[in-house]
Nucleic acid binder design. Structure first.
Lengths: 339, 339
DNA sequence: CTCGTTTATGCAAACGTTATTATAAACATT
DNA sequence: AATGTTTATAATAACGTTTGCATAAACGAG
């Protein structure tokens, strides 16, 4: 019923609380005899040390915060597993929050994390300026920023080479002979969207194709948004011959829209995506995508965070950019009959 | 640098700590004058009350634990969002853990949650017998079991009607004229697997089809496992004319395997799945599935848990079974040419 | 056999809150 | 004017740990 405390154990065994405490943490200078008896009673009584009380005196909670936009986005689960598996080795646990790209919600959660005295934070911020993050900085709570970027805040970052990945995707289409390359792009303002857009534009420039604003449509990083956006492309007088759908959800949207429009991929229109799926092989045609190392992003971020928390290794600021990779499957066709 | 405590604020304002505490929690009998000054300083100094310290005296952490097998399984993210959105209204946060169906890992995590003094637990147990859960019971920490079942433990449960869902799926195939109905089944021993298998068998019996053990293959709830299992079905002298792939991942596996085997769905073989996808429309052909209300499972579980934690409403044990639904799309065909 | 050292243990303070009780001033009631 | 009541605040004791200091017994060295 009531919680069993260290004192209860101490009383039962007939030693002081400090002795029990020492036994629990395997400190030196405890006779094997007492150790045995304490451990015995701990087990029998079902004593579990209160980590909150411990946190107060040790000033560490062995908890980190993880703030992402939405775990329902298939991009995140592997990333979070990367974090979890890494911090788990250090007996750390994670408090998870979904911002839904809502700045208010994000702030509310970050405040809670501050109150919960997390030892470190991994965040994919809703915008580059998050005032409350200053509070983490002031308190020396290390921050690792993933997937996006952060201004005015001292934080390590782990990103992927979005611009280069988008460049590769666009280049791939161009090299297949396409001239009218459309892009379904994400939520305005967030780093991934802008960087991928930049990569797309750079590729056009590089290959001397003039930018056509009507081919840049906004899918807002969602399936539904992308369905609309993709459909809108076919209302143009001169529709594209291929589509670069700039994230996983939007690629799905593009597939769905094209299916509804009865457009065959890649015969009628070539399609390329950004971010791979575990189940890519189940799609027909299998999607050509630029893949990102999702799990590794999380694992790396967690690694860096732990290094900061434990103050191990060099404490210089790290800005890691992981490589993206072009995975060629069926959705772009081999050669393309673009006119 | 150092953390700002309630005393720091008190000193600065020139009042006692208790006064600051009351102001923070909006208690009565504080002069508007002091309230204003305290709030001002709290903001300026960046004071965030230590919820760990508060937890110690209030004996509530405003944190719940959520233990599932693997968030990378698309079944879980919406479910977890259901939990999160619900508990969020009560300013609760969640500590997440993935067991990977490993009992040792599960126990380790549950122990940590016990130490962190979570106020409640939502768990999808790796097996029906989890000894450490007794400890939660003893401490009156409410448990809600989702998706699976639990023995010897006082816990509310939220499940779906797996047997009935599987029955519907199988029945659907039979009514289309199929006689040789295969099932790709999940990890042995967990409730969902066994219940769905039962539903499948019940349907066979009901329609007078003899059980053929060679048509029951084990996909172990994974994509890879299902690929193997599905392939194995075509090595039989007399292969099935349709396949019931009994969870989301395994349906993907079945799709992939059939593609590799160059079998057309539904012309060569009909396929039905259990659990729907957000992106089902992107698959070709679109899959006929028995869908479960994932989000609602989480939301309901969280609702019940909060009711227990706050001791609101009737405290009788609840066993909720949510309905599954047959969603007919293309993968079973309209009529089938089963011999 | 004395004295320094090691070994095993206990005591008490600290960590940052909240809640209970006390106190003192202001106000109301007769 | 004396007394009772309300209002605003402070003082203090928990909550369950860890840790530095104290102590006392056991041991070793000369």
């Amino acid at each position: 019923m009531e919680n069993i405390t260290i004192k209860d154990v101490a009383r039962k065994v007939g030693v002081s609380a400090s002795t029990v405490s020492r036994v629990m943490r395997g400190k030196a200078n405890i006779s094997p005899e007492t150790t045995k008896r304490v451990l015995q009673h701990v087990k029998k009584m079902g004593y579990f040390p209160d980590s909150g009380a411990r946190a107060m005196v040790k000033k560490e909670t062995k908890t980190i915060g993880v703030s992402v936009s939405d775990i329902s986005n298939p991009f995140y689960p592997p990333l979070i597993r990367g974090i979890e598996n890494t911090v788990n080795k250090f007996a750390y646990s994670i408090i998870l929050c979904n911002t839904d790209e809502d700045t208010k919600k994000e702030e509310q959660y970050l405040k809670i994390m501050l109150e919960k005295r997390i030892d470190g934070l991994i965040v994919s911020p809703t915008s580059p300026k998050i005032p409350i993050l200053k509070m983490f900085e002031i308190r020396n709570i290390p921050i690792v920023c993933i997937d996006r970027s952060l201004e005015n805040i001292e934080a390590d970052t782990v990103c992927v080479d979005n611009a280069h990945g988008a460049f590769m995707a666009t280049e791939h289409l161009i090299k297949l002979g396409h001239k009218r390359v459309a892009i379904v792009t994400g939520i305005k303002g967030i780093a991934t969207t802008e960087e991928r857009l930049k990569g797309y534009l750079d590729a056009l420039t590089r290959y001397g194709i003039e930018k056509d604003l009507s081919l840049i449509v906004r899918g807002n990083s969602t399936i539904q948004g992308s369905i609309e956006a993709t459909k809108s492309l076919f209302k143009l007088k001169s529709p594209p011959t291929c589509i670069f759908s700039a994230n996983n959800l939007m690629l799905i949207g593009t597939y769905i829209a094209l299916k509804k429009l009865k457009k065959r991929i890649p015969e009628d229109i070539a399609v390329i995506g950004f971010d791979d799926f575990d189940w890519a092989e189940a799609l027909a045609p299998t999607p050509t995508v630029v893949s990102q190392p999702n799990y590794t992003i999380g694992a790396t971020a967690a690694q860096i965070l732990m290094q900061r928390i434990l103050k191990e290794g060099p404490q210089t600021r790290q800005n890691i950019t992981l490589k993206t990779e072009l995975i060629i499957r069926q959705s772009c066709g081999a050669k393309c009959g673009a006119k």
